[in-house]
């Protein structure tokens, strides 16, 4: 931002802070307040308590949180594996077919996730692909929705990787597999972590497709929250939302602390 005077800069920052405060901050504060509210009739809630959290932590909600984490982790891991594989396999393609593949990958993000869920439901409700009512179909739905982002992230990383590293590795006698394991993948680590983090966060918040396909035994937390608020239990829903957000945040923080030595040298 090319604003030089001190007051000008302060003003610019002020506007920016206000904008972000309103867009991100206010809803979050509202949910946080609601999660500890007993009643909310005036401008601010009353009868504050942590009761909703206590309820959340035993019973169904704890199980739903576990389901969400497992779904997110499995779907993200598979997406990271297959997305990287696709990115590596497709990188030497000519631009035209490549764009086609890019589009195929990103298509699921361009349609409502409910439609993705519906599509899967219709596709897998018949023999021989009868997955309707299984845990697997939930994970597949999440995978379809997030794989574009792993693919996109890894592709971006690959295109930014100077070709010399792999060429030099080859000239030193490294066969393709060895080169991939010792050079390409380690250099891509930051992108892989970013891809996994983004996928996991998206999976943790996914509700549209899940609601179409989930079996009774595999209810994710967002679906649980949706059901609660649908029944009017807004405060309990808010408490679960906070729980979901905090869990996701902890996982993301953990991921961001994985050391990546693949920092390109300066200069």
């Amino acid at each position: 931002m090319l604003v030089w005077s001190r007051t000008g800069r302060a003003g610019a920052w002020g506007v920016l802070a206000l904008l972000f405060g309103v867009v991100y901050g206010v809803p979050l504060v509202m949910i946080a307040l609601a999660s500890i509210a007993g009643q909310w009739n005036g401008a601010l809630p009353s009868h504050l308590s942590l009761g909703h959290y206590a309820e959340a932590l035993d019973g169904d909600s704890a199980a739903q949180l576990r389901v969400s984490i497992v779904t997110g982790a499995v779907a993200s891991a598979v997406a990271m594996f297959l997305g990287s594989w696709a990115a590596l396999a497709l990188r030497n393609l000519r631009p035209a077919p490549r764009r086609l593949f890019d589009m195929v990958f990103f298509l699921p993000s361009a349609v409502p996730s409910v439609s993705v869920g519906l599509g899967l439901l219709v596709a897998f409700s018949r023999q021989p692909l009868l997955l309707n009512g299984t845990t697997l179909i939930v994970i597949i739905a999440h995978f379809v929705l997030i794989s574009a982002f792993t693919y996109g992230n890894v592709s971006a990383g690959l295109s930014r990787l100077p070709p010399e590293f792999e060429l030099v590795a080859a000239s030193l006698g490294a066969r393709p597999g060895y080169r991939l394991r010792r050079v390409t993948l380690p250099l891509l680590t930051p992108y892989l972590i970013a891809a996994f983090s983004l996928s996991f966060a998206m999976s943790m918040g996914e509700v549209g497709a899940t609601i179409m396909v989930y079996p009774p035994g595999w209810v994710t937390l967002p679906v649980g929250i949706f059901a609660l608020t649908d029944r009017g239990e807004v405060f309990a829903g808010a408490a679960l939302t906070m729980l979901l957000a905090i869990t996701t945040l902890i996982v993301l923080l953990g991921l961001s602390r994985i050391p990546t030595k693949a920092v390109t040298r300066q200069g």
Partner: peptide, 29 residues
């Protein structure tokens, strides 16, 4: 293929593997 040619190459920007220490770089081949 390049990996069967048994030659040493130094490229313009050196391309030392940034995630490996100096001795690991030298040991790579």
């Amino acid at each position: 293929p390049p990996y069967e040619r048994d030659l040493g190459m130094v490229v313009q920007n050196y391309a030392l593997f940034p995630h490996m220490r100096v001795d690991e770089n030298v040991a790579f081949g």
